Amino acid sequence: MQRLKTRAQFQAVLAGKTVARTPHFALHRAALDVLPVPPKTTATSAPPPTEPESTRPQALFGVQDVWVGAMAPKRWAKRAVTRNAIKRQIYQVVQAFEPRFPQAAHVVRLRSTFDRKVFVSATSEPLKLAVRTELEQLFGMAVTKVGSAP
């Protein structure tokens, strides 16, 4: 499993298809945009490049693998400790589902807030359990869609 790191990677995946939704999360998926790597050549066999290195097209995703990113906006999780706890849960749960995911880029996005009156502590066990349960439901829906696709 590879993690998404750049803004361009996240934007490319968010522009893709939403494959599953739960009350608090959405899962976006996009096919990998991998450019073929040119074969290694010696200095005498290939002419020097005519354009600078920075103007060549770059692949957003360097390898064919399952790519995952997590988004927990401040709008829906005000405290940093809550956002970080949710992201950690996302990455832990996705590891269990990774073998069943297609080789594509995925973003799990928090799309609504967890009620602070119900979950008082940002790292409470009830919040962790609620997040984990909903993420398992989200990934379960996404995996069944992949398995039922023709």
Rank of each mutant, 00 (worst) to 15 (best):
M1I: 13
Q2K: 15
L4A: 08
R7I: 06
A8I: 02
F10D: 04
F10R: 02
Q11A: 15
Q11H: 11
V13W: 13
L14V: 07
A15P: 03
A15D: 14
G16I: 11
T18H: 02
V19M: 09
A20H: 11
A20S: 14
T22A: 10
H24E: 13
F25M: 10
A26G: 04
A30M: 11
A30P: 01
A31P: 03
L32M: 10
L32R: 10
L32D: 10
V34A: 06
V37A: 12
P38A: 14
K40R: 14
T41D: 03
P47E: 15
T50Q: 14
E51W: 01
P52M: 06
E53G: 00
R56G: 07
P57R: 11
P57M: 03
A59G: 12
A59W: 02
A59R: 09
G62D: 06
V63S: 10
V63G: 00
Q64Y: 06
Q64D: 10
V66Q: 11
V68H: 00
V68Q: 09
A70Q: 07
M71R: 07
K74M: 01
W76L: 01
K78W: 02
V81I: 11
V81N: 14
T82C: 06
T82Q: 14
R83V: 02
R83A: 02
N84K: 00
K87P: 11
K87L: 10
Q89P: 00
I90W: 02
Q92Y: 01
V93D: 02
V93F: 01
V94Y: 08
Q95E: 15
Q95V: 00
Q95A: 14
P99C: 09
P102N: 08
A105T: 10
S112Q: 12
T113N: 06
F114Q: 03
D115E: 13
R116V: 12
R116Q: 13
V118D: 03
F119A: 03
S121A: 14
K128R: 15
L129H: 11
L129C: 00
R132P: 01
T133S: 13
L135E: 09
E136H: 14
Q137C: 07
L138D: 08
F139R: 05
G140S: 15
V143L: 10
V143G: 07
K145F: 03
G147H: 09
S148G: 11
